[in-house]
Design a protein around this nucleic acid. Structure first.
Length: 902
RNA sequence: GCUCUGGUGGUGGAAUUGGUAGACACGCAGGACUUAAAAUCCUGUUCCUUUUUUGGAGUGCGGGUUCAAGUCCCGCCCGGAGCACCA
């Protein structure tokens, strides 16, 4: 490969090969990236345009559970079908670089990256990931007193103490530093799937895949410390060319908010029996409660406090007479599923009987528990300011608590009726802080709180560490062996996925791998039996394409340096907060370790819209049934005959009495509905069928012509004849209906050169702007014009073929060879655009009077402005419109318009 | 509720960022070729008005800036997507 040439890396989000095969929506983005790839190749770039498969995942496994067939077999079958379908459409993928995430030669490196994460920690001082061995040497020299890290809080210890710790204690301490670590927490547990899910795999309290209920469960799980990268993930968004909406989604997901931690001391302290078995001070008494707030300026309006029902201090601050009520409420809350909790908007809560002391006013503040405070965010406790927070206001109303206004508003407001949440106005009822603006108040109150030692500035994030354990079979095994309970690394990669008797999760929280004892028990200890989640393999696959067969590294240094960032990444928005965030995280991590010289993986991201299906619905009285779209006619009707055939083989129609349906001349009308393509809606359109009917080039052109790449649009074959007709017209410029040659070696006419160069210009611009629908329109204009000019000149036609080649590779390649050119059309060069051919000597100006267009006059383009002015004013029609009035002003926009203002 | 998007003919959609709105295509209507159909080609097609002439209105609604607004500003209405007790 000639590495002195410029490079271009065009990538598609690799598909998960499901059993259903491709539908016409899948190729949309692939066609676009293929056009750009071919265009760049014609322009002299080395283009990396690979394809592969995200092959680990739940559907194959669920199919395996049902049928007992090994997921590897079904995956291989599906994959072969996908490839066949893709090849039919004529993509220029470099299949020699194909990756499959379930291939041991691939997941070997997924496991290797996991090991790097396990053996790294995040040093806040250098603001990057560093080796855990260096951290251990620091511990050995000076303990952890000077270590600033991103991670869980660790007790401080000295070098001597570190020396004394047992291997298990050391391991536990290191877990709070490692970037891949274990932690016991409440997790999203899906009973039906028998596994834990990450936050972004849960939608509306249901599993994204399957739609099963998700509950909270306490389990020991692997996590990746993505939170260490929160700020860098946020900051990096400013330097990449992605759509605003995706950037915004990531910003919201990371959810940075600036505020303060405030400490409220407690009035009541623990009076129960001491827990002798615990040496944790907090179990004996809770001296104070910390809250996170973004509005420290409203602290004087705080009239009560609320804790999450599962906050660690709840039982200690609860008074005896309130204990039964509090426990009942907590119990109920804990057993609610995520979905139930989100469904009920009802205000609920219980008074604990405990009181906190307001740090400024020393007033007693009752402490409540309520579901509206989440234990996972901030400190799991809030200072409630009902006058200036909508939720606190609702709570105060329900429980009859005080509402004190501390921020004044411009308009007339009554905080007893409605809270005033805007961050505008001046402080009031706030002692010395009165009259300060909100902004000043926030500063001043934090400052004083810091001086007095009960508060500090604090940045909070919504982003959680990413759960990395799945109790599943069809995924990457962890390269981890427990030696007397201590997790240690197995460097002998790959750790291959073993055979098991059953793929079914045990339901007890153990993965199917646990049943293969021979595999689990090694001479060094027991293997980790969970597997990695779906996003593991997809978080770095774009790097493997650069050097897919490397056995020494995940990719070689030269390859990584040459191919560098993905220049263009095309895919759907469904991965906005999952895959795209994890990939950015892994890239930054590998950058920190020095393996990459870029820390954002995808320079430009384009999200193609979804192609929806048009469902055909048959009204059968009480309900509607989906009719397979291929049986319906174009005008949304179906013949009785076809309906009878359908009834015979589809049991959904068993009880249908066709004679009762309203029929007109043997046709029954159907209702159409645009919705997502899916098997169950019988509205899937297979690209193979379109290729059969019209050919792959028509499919490619039509999908591009449908509208802007980024818009969602329903699939409809209504306009497909237009693009097909275009290709026939193109062919007719070379050969007539009888197959006789009509192209010739004649000198191109001036007009045809003009048409050609206009097209070269427009197509180049359009591809750069991802405006493929207008490119197709331009090709149609080009062919129509050449046709009416009777242009059959080979010199023109072969250039047209080259610029059309990225869009319609099959027909252009065929004609390219037919007219006597050897070799691939992709090895040709993009024609050079000659501006001089387009320059016209005269131009028709629209002439308007007071902004209304009245007539047009032709002028030489190089005519001076004042000459044009004179000519316009002496024009008959203009004079008639002026009716003798003197013009105030004449505006001449060169090449555009002349406007006379009266 | 918050954030991001978008609203243009019968339909999908154009409009070089303030310069003749409706490119291109579908559909529809009329015509040519044909015994006929298909295919192909030609003409017309924003709406209202009108004798083909001609006017007038028009880019979700209401204001504004400008010689000139689909495009910019202010206030509404509607659709799509995402987030959603995040303190």
């Amino acid at each position: 490969m000639d590495t002195t040439k410029p490079k271009f890396y065009a990538l598609d989000m690799f598909p998960y090969p499901s059993g259903a095969g491709l539908h016409v929506g899948h190729p949309l983005g692939y066609i676009a990236s293929d056009i750009v790839s071919r265009y760049k190749r014609l322009n002299g770039y080395n283009v990396l345009h690979p394809m592969g498969f995200d092959a680990f995942g739940l559907p194959a496994e669920q199919y395996a559970i049902q049928t007992g067939q090994h997921p590897a077999i079904t995956t291989a079958e599906n994959l072969a079908r996908y490839k066949e379908q893709l090849n039919r459409i004529g993509f220029s993928f470099d299949w020699s670089r194909e990756v499959q995430t379930c291939d041991p030669n691939y997941y070997k490196w997924t496991q290797w990256i996991f090991i790097q994460l396990f053996e790294s920690w995040y040093n806040v001082k250098s603001d990057k990931a560093e080796s855990i061995d260096q951290l251990i040497s620091i511990f050995e020299i000076e303990g952890n007193i000077n270590v600033a890290h991103h991670g869980d809080e660790a007790k401080s210890f000295t070098a001597e103490q570190w020396e004394q710790f047992s291997p298990m204690e050391k391991s536990n301490i290191l877990q709070s530093y490692r970037l891949a670590f274990q932690k016991e927490t409440t997790v999203n547990w899906c009973e039906e799937l028998g596994t834990v899910l990450a936050n972004d795999e849960v939608k509306d309290g249901l599993s994204e895949r399957g739609g099963y209920p998700v509950t909270q469960k306490l389990m020991k799980q692997w996590y990746l410390r993505i939170t260490a990268y929160s700020d860098r993930l946020l900051e990096g968004l400013n330097h990449i060319d992605w759509s605003d909406s995706i950037k915004e989604m990531q910003r919201n997901w990371i959810g940075r908010s600036e505020g303060a931690l405030m400490t409220f001391s407690l009035e009541t302290q623990y009076k129960g029996e001491e827990d002798k078995n615990s040496n944790l001070k907090s179990n004996l008494l809770a001296p104070s409660i910390q809250v996170f707030t973004t509005r420290p300026d409203t602290i004087f309006g705080c009239t009560f406090m609320v804790l999450a029902p599962d906050h660690e201090f709840v039982s200690q601050i609860t008074s005896e007479d309130q204990r039964a009520a509090v426990e009942a409420y907590s119990h109920k809350a804990a057993n609610k599923s995520e979905r139930e909790r989100m469904m009920s908007k009802e205000v609920s809560g219980v008074f604990t009987g405990g009181y906190a002391i307001h740090p400024f006013t020393n007033k007693k503040l009752p402490i409540y528990i309520s579901e509206y405070v989440l234990s996972g965010y901030g400190t799991g406790a809030i200072m409630a300011v009902p006058a200036h927070d909508d939720r606190d206001h609702a709570f105060a109303k329900k429980f009859g608590l005080d509402i004190i206004q501390v921020i004044s508003a411009d308009e007339e407001i009554d905080v007893q009726e409605k809270s005033y949440d805007a961050k505008e106005g001046r402080l009031m009822n706030s002692e010395n802080f009165d009259r300060l603006t909100v902004k000043e108040g926030i500063q001043a109150i934090i400052q004083l709180a810091e001086e007095r030692g009960f508060g500090e500035k604090k940045v909070n994030y919504k982003l959680r560490d990413a759960g990395y354990s799945r109790q599943r079979y069809w995924g990457e095994p962890f390269p981890i062996i427990y030696k007397e309970g201590v997790p240690t690394v197995d460097y002998d990669l790959p750790v291959s996925l073993p055979e098991v008797k059953s793929y079914k999760p045990t339901g007890t929280g153990e993965s199917p791998l646990a049943s293969n004892m021979e595999w689990v028990n090694t001479s060094n200890g027991q293997r980790e039996t969970d597997t990695m989640p779906g996003y593991a393999g997809s978080s770095w696959y774009f790097l493997r394409y650069m050097d897919p067969n490397n056995n020494e590294a995940f990719a070689g240094k030269e390859s990584l340096e040459y191919w560098n960032q993905v220049d263009l990444y095309i895919g759907g928005t469904e991965h906005a907060t999952g895959h795209l965030l994890y990939s950015r995280f892994w890239t930054k991590f590998l950058y920190d370790l020095g393996y990459l010289n870029f820390d954002e993986p995808f320079k430009k991201l384009v999200n193609q819209g979804m192609i929806q299906g048009e469902s055909m619905l048959l009204n059968v009285g009480d309900r509607e049934l989906h009719i397979p779209v291929e049986l319906a006619n174009k005008d949304a009707t179906i013949t009785i005959q076809k309906l009878e055939e359908l009834k015979a083989k589809d049991n959904r129609f068993e009880n249908l009495d066709i004679s009762l349906l309203d029929n007109q001349n043997g046709l029954i009308s159907l209702r159409t509905q645009v919705e997502k393509m899916s098997k169950s809606k019988y509205n899937v359109v297979n690209p193979d069928d379109v290729c059969d009917d019209y050919g792959a080039d028509t499919l490619r052109l039509y999908e591009m012509f449908l509208g802007p790449l980024e818009d969602s649009k329903p699939w409809s074959t209504k306009g497909i004849d237009g693009t097909h007709r275009f290709l026939k017209k193109l062919w007719a410029l070379f050969y007539n209906q009888d197959g006789e040659q009509v192209w010739d070696e004649s000198e191109p006419s001036k007009d045809s050169l003009k048409t050609l160069h206009k097209t070269i210009k427009k197509i180049s611009e359009d591809i750069d702007n991802f405006s493929f629908n207008t490119s197709v329109a331009q090709f149609m204009i080009c062919v129509n014009e050449l046709g009416s000019q009777n242009c059959y000149s080979k010199a023109i036609l072969e250039k047209v073929l080259v610029i059309l080649a990225p869009f319609a590779p099959h027909i252009t390649e065929e004609l390219w060879n037919k007219i006597g050119n050897a070799g691939f059309i992709l090895d040709a060069a993009w024609p050079v655009f000659d501006e001089s051919l387009l320059i016209e000597s005269t131009k028709e100006y629209p002439i308007s009077v007071n902004g209304k267009a009245r007539t047009t006059i032709e002028f030489p383009l190089d005519m001076a402005k004042d000459e044009i002015e004179k000519a316009v004013l002496s024009n008959e029609i203009v004079q008639k419109w002026l009716e003798g009035k003197a013009p105030k002003k004449v505006i001449v926009v060169p090449g555009k318009i002349v406007n006379v203002v009266v």
